[in-house]
Amino acid sequence: MSETHATIAPGAPVFPPGRYGRRREPGRRRPLLLALSVAVLLAVLGLVATKLYTQYGDPEYRAQVITYTGITDSRVMVDFRVTVPPGGSATCVLRARTHDGAEVGRAEATVTASPGERHVTARHEVATTARPFIGEVVRCRPAG
């Protein structure tokens, strides 16, 4: 069947008959279905992220430098406090840096909390290759 001017809606483009295949009616858009699909996808991604964070994250191992003392050309003493799960232990990475920020020493210290305790205060010496300006705790993770 060929199209005539009587069968064409006003404002619709006119194409030569048989040239572009069968014409389809414009499809209905489904914004509600799209919004629902996006919401479900975001919820699933949120649940996956939460599960992975609780499984592999270590939010309970927080360290804070109290002070650093005993600075010589070959060492610095770092006093720090670590928050761990009650009765748990942590391995902390300490480092010493010069005034310009270059790392001149690195050490690991393992600390263990007493049963029922969440905070551990420790002192550890970091050996250095040059005179340090600062001693700091880089990170703490579960010991093991």
Rank of each mutant, 00 (worst) to 15 (best):
M1Y: 14
T4D: 14
T4L: 14
H5K: 10
A6M: 14
I8M: 08
P10K: 13
G11K: 09
G11L: 03
A12Q: 11
A12K: 10
F15M: 12
F15G: 06
F15I: 11
P16I: 08
P17C: 13
G18L: 03
R19S: 06
R19A: 12
R19I: 06
Y20K: 07
G21V: 04
R22D: 02
R22H: 06
R22T: 08
R24P: 01
E25L: 15
P26V: 07
R28P: 06
R28Q: 12
R28H: 09
R29V: 13
R30C: 12
P31T: 09
L32G: 15
L32C: 00
L33A: 15
L36E: 14
V38E: 00
A43W: 09
A43S: 10
V44N: 04
G46V: 05
L47V: 15
L47K: 07
A49P: 02
K51T: 12
K51Y: 11
T54K: 05
Q55W: 07
Q55P: 00
Y56M: 15
D58T: 12
P59M: 14
Y61H: 05
R62G: 03
A63I: 05
A63P: 00
A63F: 02
Q64C: 07
Q64Y: 11
V65I: 07
V65R: 06
I66H: 10
T67L: 06
Y68R: 00
I71T: 14
T72R: 15
S74H: 11
S74R: 11
S74F: 05
V76T: 02
V76I: 13
V78Y: 00
V78P: 01
D79M: 02
F80N: 07
R81D: 08
T83R: 14
T83G: 09
V84A: 02
P85A: 07
G87F: 11
G87E: 10
S89T: 08
A90M: 05
A90F: 04
T91D: 11
T91Y: 05
T91Q: 14
C92T: 02
A96V: 03
R97V: 11
T98G: 13
T98I: 05
T98F: 09
G101K: 07
G101D: 08
A102W: 02
G105I: 01
R106T: 14
A107Q: 15
A109D: 07
T110K: 13
T112V: 08
T112D: 09
T112G: 04
A113E: 07
A113F: 02
A113Y: 01
S114Q: 13
P115A: 15
G116K: 09
E117Q: 12
E117P: 01
R118H: 10
H119D: 10
A122T: 07
R123E: 09
V126H: 01
V126F: 00
V126E: 01
V126T: 02
A127K: 13
A127I: 03
T129N: 09
T129Q: 08
A130R: 11
A130Y: 08
R131D: 01
P132K: 00
P132I: 05
I134G: 02
E136F: 03
E136W: 09
V137N: 03
V138P: 02
V138D: 15
R139I: 02
R139A: 06
C140H: 02
R141T: 06
A143K: 04
G144I: 05
